[in-house]
């Protein structure tokens, strides 16, 4: 009489009805993007030009590359505030190498390796010593940029080789810049890793319940360490692009990028508490931020005023779904 119940089929992921796709975060972002696009094309006659649109992408590709890795890190429940400082330090190291006569391949290698090293340093402090990442990376943010300031002071490195300019200024095909191509390829890779591999599922799992993951045999610390390295690596790559685009290095390079990258991630629908988010959302948020800054730029709105729009966009986009839900449930505020 010991009937074992027939093994029930448990689906890997739940069926998604069409309605959930229509009311998803990404759909909201698409609507906002289309709206801003439409407003921009009406507001400025110069907007709908292929080259204008191409210039637009430079507003977000570098920060977007950082935001892709940052998204994974935030989903896993950590954060990295030192990314902009890593950009500055990697750029400074590349500048030193130029003074020593290094060629383009060496420069790229230095930028990427310095980024990776800084990320690994953050990762070690957080995972090995069990420190809160927000505090650690506030510290390393001062430390990394501080080293750049010690080396450079109020000076600047210039004289990057001609061939180095391709990364930040070159075009792959017609109006499609190398930066945009790299961002799209990176987004595709990150999408695959996060949404189609067991590594990606583990990142979500860690963000939802690190303790349960630990007891389920997920190597929480190792995955977090890898994510910090990835974030450092992407910052190094972004550093190569920015340095190449500007053609010079100052210790204040990329100042404030960390908050813009985090804004991008949160706008993209990643929960700041960890455990939820998508790469598609990040890509859309990157485009939206690029559209807003570029469109307002065409209308001669100063950068500081644009930041009001970005800040409002962040809070409103987060608040809207909450208010909407409350309205439907009939209890306002």
């Amino acid at each position: 009489m010991t009937d074992t119940p027939a093994p029930r089929h448990i689906p890997d992921r739940l069926d998604k009805p069409l309605s959930s796709a229509i009311f998803s975060w990404e759909a909201l972002l698409v609507i906002i993007a289309v709206a801003i696009f439409a407003v921009n094309s009406v507001a400025s006659p110069y907007f709908l030009d292929p080259w204008s649109l191409s210039d637009l992408t430079f507003n977000f590709t570098e920060k977007g590359l950082i935001a892709l890795a940052m998204a994974l890190l935030i989903i896993s429940g950590e954060i990295d505030l030192s990314v902009a400082a890593i950009v500055a330090l990697a750029s400074t190291m590349m500048g030193m190498a130029v003074q020593a006569g290094a060629g383009t391949p060496v420069l790229v290698a230095i930028g990427v390796v310095v980024g990776l090293g800084c990320g690994a340093f953050n990762g070690l402090l957080v995972t090995r010593l069990g420190l809160p990442s927000i505090v650690v990376t506030i510290g390393t943010m001062s430390l990394f940029r501080g080293i750049a300031f010690i080396i450079l002071g109020d000076q600047a490195y210039k004289g990057y080789p001609e061939s180095f300019a391709f990364f930040g200024q070159g075009y792959v095909w017609w109006v499609f810049s190398f930066e945009l191509a790299l961002f799209l390829v990176a987004a595709a890779i990150y999408w695959f890793v996060l949404h189609r591999t067991s590594f990606g599922r583990r990142i979500f799992a860690i963000g939802n319940n690190p303790v349960a993951c630990q007891f389920s045999g997920v190597r929480v610390d190792r995955i977090k360490f890898i994510l910090f390295c990835l974030t450092g690596l992407m910052s190094g790559i972004a550093s190569v692009l920015i340095t190449s685009r500007l053609g010079s290095t100052r210790p204040s390079i990329a100042q404030g990028y960390e908050l813009e990258a985090i804004t991008m991630v949160v706008l993209g629908g990643v929960s700041i508490l960890g455990g939820a988010g998508s790469i598609l959302g990040i890509v859309l948020a990157a485009f939206i931020m690029g559209l807003v800054t570029f469109g307002l730029g065409l209308l001669n709105v100063p950068g500081i005023v644009m930041s009001i729009f970005i800040g409002l966009l962040l809070i409103i986009v987060i608040a809207l779904p909450i208010l909407w839900r409350r309205l439907r449930e009939g209890r306002f505020a």
């Binding site: 908050l259 970005i310 809070i315 987060i318 608040a319 505020a333």
Partner: peptide, 19 residues
Amino acid sequence: RLNIPSIVVTLGTLTIYRG
């Protein structure tokens, strides 16, 4: 009232107030 994490709220108001 909206239960938005403080880091998100103040990240937004950081740029809004200065702007």
